[in-house]
Nucleic acid binder design. Structure first.
Lengths: 341, 341
DNA sequence: ACCCATTATTAACATGTGTTAGCAACGTAC
DNA sequence: GTACGTTGCTAACACATGTTAATAATGGGT
């Protein structure tokens, strides 16, 4: 229409100084008339970059967005995206497969949530040469990762409950999914279990001595599980150690509904220390991990990897016990006649 | 390497039945050896679709993810993505411009949050022929949109507070941003203000008669604003109507910290009815809007538009007042000597 | 008038795919 | 032995860009 080559059009948009003003204006005029603008995908294809970070998620989007943990984590990732001008692509499993989702994501790299280094997804990313960072996995030599010292956090909170005199306890844990049968606990959950077990062993107890319940990490599941736990009348626990704050939220609600007071009748502790933990009444005793910092660090590592800078960085983030109002001494009436009391 | 054409390779991956088993196996073997797999971007370019929905956001990613409102909204959008096998691309402003962000998003369509039909972004999307749906805008003929009947919600909650005898009230509102100066209130905020004004007029009052404070919609801003409001000793309000739940959360906290009881000393109401509203103590009186359903509907409309089906659907979602524990009769001591009491 | 330098513009290539029309080869029926 | 349908594969095109090296045009100096 203007009578110039495609290259001239490209110059008009990308390096206008290389064209005479007259030609440039003619091109822009024509572009406006035709409604033309450079195609996003073609541009990305040619440039070999998308200006977008992917987050490879282990669950459906609906479940992820419902989970305040991820809201916090993605806040951290989002901070880095904001700074660097990246968009954020959330990539849930496709037909229940994280592996199948990979080829449908137009991203420069992935933050991979909750996968161990030996998973097929990791091999696939390596094969494709897509940069990635593992989060909540287990440190492994040639793979960048960001992890949390869950074990010491779990040890600390368990010890805290034990020091308050509790012995009849329930461990409200996260469902490890089907993979557990073959491989046992892994990653953060394995570390948390180990921490609990370690603290127990120091008073001569064992994971067998406490009531272990495993449910999906939602508020509702925490609610139901707590109700079920308290129903077993004679063996009802005096403390519930939840391995996730949302489970603890649900448990506190359930106890309220049962007419039980927290912490006077039953102590409840969480894990993660979500912002909400300090909003609720009673304020929740929980293990703090720097969730947003975890997201930030992972995204920073990923950006480095995309730029081809740093090679295989690892980061282990600490935890700390935040004692608030939901944990207290075991009730006097219940503290007698129990093992190790 | 195999000695076949590129087309054959394409067939091997996409319609294997059109190739003889021998050739196909040879191709796969070579692909494995070379680490080849079809390029995502090229595939999208040729197919003309990305299997990805975009959400065009008015704020930085970090701010968005911190906001429980968006968590809920994106849960709804996410549900549809899950069902339809789409990924979700979060597109924050690029260098403070939503317009600039558009060409960097590889998506099949946009859910556009909080923009009016006359904004440049909307024109740009139309020009590019990218399907989109406006959310929290104002209904407009040729543009698909999903809106909420904020006005009646605001009217109801204001009337509720008035019926409880309050007259000295503060309206804790959301900062409308710089655009307000030129164009006045728009969209949901305009409707909410109108609803409040309408309810006030029914008792002979006016927006001028109440204390209007406008702050960014964060918990911390709500906290600070509430503290400032109560500081003006003789004119301190007996009720705070917040136009957003997070602002109300912050306000409740501030009142606690000031040693004031909610609702005995001061009533507080929210807007949105986030899930958290029912978790907090006191449980928050709030205007419920179906946030997740809003996201679902928007995404459904968008998918229709992408498929080229339905043309310009509109949806107006209702609101309802949820009265809980944070609102009560005006304290006896304060109910005398006030205008219209 | 001629050479050179500078600037404006373009042809050709590279990024990787999916699709369509068509060409060989091959077997089968008559 | 020839006409015909089937199978297996390929050449050419389309999707749209950005980049580089080469070419055309222009003006100025001698």
């Amino acid at each position: 229409m203007v009578g110039v080559s495609r290259s001239a059009v490209s110059f008009a948009f990308n390096s206008p100084e290389r064209l005479s003003v007259a030609t440039r204006d003619r091109i822009f005029a024509a572009a406006k008339e035709l409604g033309y603008s450079p195609n996003t995908l073609a541009r990305m294809l040619q440039a070999g970059q998308t200006q977008s970070l992917g987050v490879l998620l282990p669950q459906n989007l609906a479940k992820i967005m419902e989970n305040p943990y991820y809201a916090r984590f993605l806040t951290g990732v989002g901070q880095v995206c904001d700074e660097q001008g990246f968009t954020l692509l959330l990539t849930p499993p496709l037909r229940d497969s994280m592996l199948k989702a990979i080829p449908y994501a137009a991203v420069d790299g992935f933050v991979v949530c909750g996968l161990e280094h030996d998973r097929g997804e990791v091999a696939e990313l390596q094969r494709r040469g897509i940069p990635f960072v593992l989060v909540d996995s287990s440190p492994w030599a040639d793979v960048p990762s960001v992890d949390v010292d869950d074990e010491s956090g779990a040890r600390e909170v368990t010890r805290h409950i034990l020091e308050l005199g509790h012995r009849r306890m329930a461990l409200l844990s996260i469902d490890p999914g089907p993979e557990r049968a073959e491989r046992g606990y892994r990653g953060p959950l394995a570390r948390r279990m180990a921490g609990v077990a370690d603290a127990l062993s120091q008073v001569g107890m064992d994971l067998k001595d406490i009531n272990l319940v495993e449910v999906p990490a939602t508020r509702m599941d925490g609610y139901r599980a707590a109700k079920a736990l308290m129903a077993t009348a004679e063996a009802a626990p005096t403390a519930i150690i939840a391995l996730s704050d949302i489970l603890a939220f649900g448990a506190v609600d359930a106890l309220h509904d049962l007419g039980l007071r927290v912490p006077e009748d039953v102590s409840v502790t969480g894990f993660d220390d979500l912002p909400e933990s300090a909003w609720l009444r009673p304020r929740l005793t929980s293990v703090r991990q720097a969730i947003a910092a975890k997201g930030r660090t992972a995204a920073d590592f990923l950006i480095s990897a995309i730029r081809g800078e740093d090679q295989h960085p690892h980061q282990l983030l600490g935890t700390s016990l935040i004692v608030r109002d939901s944990s207290a001494r075991v009730p006097a009436a219940q503290s007698t006649g129990l093992p190790n009391a």
